[in-house]
């Protein structure tokens, strides 16, 4: 039981430690800076923001 207990104690310390380290790393490397820019990734010059695609149904009614 003792090795199991040690393992669990070490694990419960290690997991938050790794998580904290990863968070620090991410902040340090600018992972959280300007994340809104990442929201623009599906768009490009060919199909920029503001341009709807796949508008194929009920064309006639909408044009009138």
């Amino acid at each position: 039981m003792t090795p199991m207990f040690l393992l669990m104690a070490a694990g419960s310390l290690a997991v938050p430690a790794v998580a904290l380290w990863a968070l620090r790393w991410a902040v340090g490397h600018g992972e959280f800076q300007m994340p809104e820019r990442a929201a623009l990734l599906p768009f490009d010059e060919a199909e920029p923001v503001g341009e709807a695609t796949d508008i194929i149904l009920n064309q006639r009614t909408s044009k009138r």
Partner: peptide, 19 residues
């Protein structure tokens, strides 16, 4: 997350929330 923004031509509401 890809098709809604792509079809309406507008980025997702909040990138923070998606994280």
């Amino acid at each position: 997350y890809y098709f809604i923004p792509k079809v309406i031509g507008r980025p997702i509401h909040s990138y923070y929330l998606s994280v």
